[in-house]
Amino acid sequence: MMARLDELDRKILRALQTDAGQSLDEIARQVGSSKTPVWNRIRKMREAGVMGPSTVLVDPEALGLGTCFFVLIRTSEHEAGWQQRFLAALRARPEVQEAHRLAGEIDYILKVRVANARAYDVFYQALISEVRVFNVTALLSMEEIKSETALPI
Results as ranks from 00 to 15, higher is better:
1 M>R: 08
2 M>Q: 12
3 A>Y: 09
3 A>D: 08
7 E>M: 05
8 L>C: 05
8 L>M: 11
9 D>T: 01
9 D>G: 00
11 K>I: 01
13 L>C: 03
14 R>V: 07
14 R>S: 07
14 R>H: 05
15 A>K: 02
16 L>Y: 04
18 T>Y: 07
21 G>A: 04
21 G>N: 08
24 L>S: 05
25 D>A: 15
25 D>R: 15
28 A>Q: 00
31 V>G: 00
32 G>P: 01
32 G>Q: 04
34 S>E: 04
34 S>W: 02
36 T>Y: 11
38 V>F: 02
39 W>K: 11
39 W>T: 05
40 N>W: 07
40 N>M: 11
42 I>C: 01
43 R>I: 09
43 R>S: 09
47 E>I: 04
47 E>T: 11
48 A>C: 06
48 A>L: 14
50 V>M: 03
51 M>D: 02
51 M>H: 04
52 G>A: 10
53 P>A: 14
53 P>F: 09
54 S>P: 10
55 T>W: 06
56 V>Q: 13
57 L>I: 09
57 L>Y: 09
59 D>V: 03
60 P>E: 06
62 A>S: 14
62 A>C: 07
63 L>A: 09
63 L>Q: 11
64 G>V: 06
66 G>P: 01
67 T>C: 13
68 C>W: 09
68 C>D: 08
70 F>R: 03
71 V>Q: 00
71 V>L: 02
73 I>T: 00
74 R>L: 05
75 T>F: 05
75 T>D: 06
76 S>F: 11
81 G>C: 06
82 W>Y: 13
84 Q>E: 14
86 F>R: 01
87 L>C: 09
87 L>F: 10
88 A>D: 15
88 A>M: 02
90 L>S: 06
91 R>K: 14
93 R>T: 14
93 R>N: 13
98 E>K: 13
99 A>K: 02
101 R>K: 12
101 R>D: 11
103 A>G: 10
104 G>T: 07
105 E>R: 13
106 I>Q: 00
108 Y>H: 11
108 Y>C: 03
108 Y>Q: 05
109 I>R: 04
109 I>G: 01
110 L>D: 00
111 K>L: 14
111 K>A: 14
112 V>Q: 01
113 R>Y: 04
114 V>M: 03
115 A>L: 02
115 A>N: 04
116 N>E: 13
117 A>M: 08
120 Y>N: 02
121 D>T: 10
121 D>W: 05
123 F>P: 00
123 F>K: 03
124 Y>D: 15
124 Y>L: 06
127 L>P: 00
128 I>F: 11
128 I>H: 13
129 S>C: 11
129 S>W: 08
130 E>T: 14
131 V>F: 07
132 R>P: 00
132 R>K: 14
134 F>R: 15
135 N>W: 08
137 T>W: 07
137 T>Y: 05
137 T>P: 00
137 T>C: 03
138 A>Q: 06
138 A>H: 08
138 A>T: 07
138 A>G: 07
138 A>D: 10
140 L>W: 06
140 L>M: 12
141 S>I: 06
141 S>T: 15
142 M>D: 08
144 E>P: 11
146 K>N: 13
150 A>P: 06
151 L>D: 09
153 I>M: 12
